[in-house]
Amino acid sequence: MPLIIGGGVVVVALAVVGVLGFVTPGFFMSRVFDRAAVEQGVAQVLTQDYGIANVGGVACAEGIPVRAGSSFECDASIDGQPVRVPIQITTDQGNYEVGRPA
């Protein structure tokens, strides 16, 4: 009888680990930014918030993890000149700040 109860506890524990491991974002999953959404957001901040005219394409890396306190850069063009745009991730929910291009 103790073997059956012990086996049941193991099954329940594995089920809990499995569920928690794959629930957003879970132990076995990591959240990453939607590349197209970040590119569009960066372009919008550059033009609307910073008032920069002639912003060309914005290109960010694929698979950037959502991790508060981390940072990355996107490439853009302004007046046909390449620039790097610093991005600071502010929350684990995916909020970020767009810095001025360098």
Rank of each mutant, 00 (worst) to 15 (best):
M1G: 15
M1C: 13
M1A: 12
M1I: 10
P2R: 15
P2A: 15
L3R: 13
L3W: 08
L3N: 12
L3E: 14
I4R: 13
I4A: 08
I5T: 13
I5E: 10
I5W: 12
I5D: 14
I5A: 15
I5N: 13
G6E: 06
G6R: 04
G6A: 14
G6W: 06
G7C: 02
V9L: 11
V9C: 07
V9F: 03
V9H: 06
V9N: 03
V10I: 11
V10C: 01
V11A: 15
V11H: 10
V11S: 14
V11G: 13
V11I: 14
V12P: 01
V12I: 11
A13C: 07
A13W: 00
A13P: 02
A13M: 03
L14P: 06
L14W: 08
A15D: 07
V16G: 10
V17E: 01
G18T: 05
G18I: 07
G18A: 10
V19G: 08
V19T: 14
V19R: 05
V19Y: 15
L20F: 14
L20P: 00
L20A: 03
L20Q: 14
L20N: 12
G21F: 04
F22I: 12
V23G: 06
V23M: 06
V23R: 00
V23F: 02
T24S: 14
T24E: 08
T24H: 12
T24M: 09
P25C: 02
P25T: 01
P25Y: 06
G26S: 04
G26D: 02
F27Y: 07
F27N: 10
F27L: 10
F27W: 10
F28Y: 05
M29Q: 13
M29E: 11
M29S: 09
M29W: 10
M29L: 11
M29D: 09
S30K: 14
S30V: 09
S30Q: 13
S30F: 07
R31D: 15
R31C: 11
R31K: 14
R31Q: 14
V32E: 00
V32Y: 01
